[in-house]
Design a binder for these strands. Structure first.
Lengths: 183, 183
DNA sequence: CCGAGGAGTTACAACTTATAACGAAAGCGA
DNA sequence: TCGCTTTCGTTATAAGTTGTAACTCCTCGG
């Protein structure tokens, strides 16, 4: 099944290469620095060629955001039987692996831009896992999960943004302290 | 004293107008959407004229960031004799008044870009106020203040980014719950 | 084997930031 | 008041961006 023509296979491969280069660029220059021309050059082709694969710069970015949410959800799902603290550490590891990827999902939003609808469902999967981890900790696990998430995001995003540098405190210590506050 | 020549006065006024238009643009399109040409047009002049006032787009943005930090510090300083909870609410009000201004200070960082050095001192003033508010709450008020700040930032930034919309929870309730967690 | 469609190319339009060179106006000293 | 100098805003231009249009060429499928 899944009869893939050679054209299709080539197409999906080139799309993957484009996205790979895009991630490299984002890691270096952030999302605003993403340039279709630069990607095309790196792949040995001219700018307009990329429009065969993505109808606009925004569509490429949207796909990257979708993939970021997917990677996040997958990382959380891949965590085995862990408690809330373990889950929190998985989240932190995923964020530290590529800070700009984290910011693409939970960073500064562009006022006009709307994240694709299915990312909400993907983010909800992560939240469900959090809720499950909060199940035995007391009443109202949903609320507990949301508050856990806001605390983790708070300490994580400030660390990733570099707001702790030169403050003489260990971010991982701070993170662990917040993790302890959850149970 | 403070002998201000007419030229100087005119210059500072135009600079202020440029920054005002820049803030309007940022509120609408975010920091990446800031366009010198668009600002110039709105002020009835051509693009290159702005370079008399700011040597580059980055310098304008840097000044806006500096002003954002200053406004933040001033808002906190203007709060009278308030406890930690009151301070937290002042922070939230300041953030809600202009979300993009908040994100300009504590949002996604551009990898290459470094915020001006004096913003660290300004941010420290806010932190000092927080530490003072944490003085009577127990040992290690510095650590308490940092953790308070990460929690407030966590719940606030997710609210401002719209991650609570459609989640059937009241952001202000959530914020107040976190505020209660601080004492 | 040959036609259709897709991939990549160049050319172009409309934008952006930024620099250079010029004109005009305003301020300041004599 | 006169004139010099500084500064402001202009146009022209360079080099970059996204995105469209038209054309070529190659490859795949019948």
């Amino acid at each position: 099944m899944t009869s893939t023509t050679p054209r299709e296979r080539y197409r999906t491969q080139v799309k993957a290469e484009i996205k790979a280069k895009a991630w490299e660029q984002i890691a270096v220059s952030g999302a605003p620095g993403l340039s279709l021309n630069a990607i095309a050059k790196q792949l040995g082709m001219t700018g307009p060629a990329l429009y065969r694969y993505f109808s606009s710069r925004d569509e490429l970015l949207t796909e990257l955001i979708r993939d970021a949410y997917g990677s996040f959800s997958a990382a959380v799902a891949a965590a085995g039987e862990v408690d809330l603290a373990g889950l929190a550490r998985v989240v932190r590891e995923w964020a530290l692996a590529d800070p700009q990827r984290y910011f693409l999902t939970y960073g500064t939003p562009v006022p006009g831009y709307q994240a694709p609808e299915d990312t909400r469902a993907t983010a909800q999967q992560v939240m469900d896992r959090l809720v499950a981890a909060c199940a035995g900790l007391g009443p109202d696990p949903e609320m507990r999960a949301v508050r856990a998430w806001t605390r983790l995001h708070g300490v994580l995003s400030l660390e990733l943004a570099g707001h702790f540098s030169g403050m003489d405190l260990d971010p991982s210590e701070l993170f662990e302290a917040e993790v302890r506050s959850l149970s």
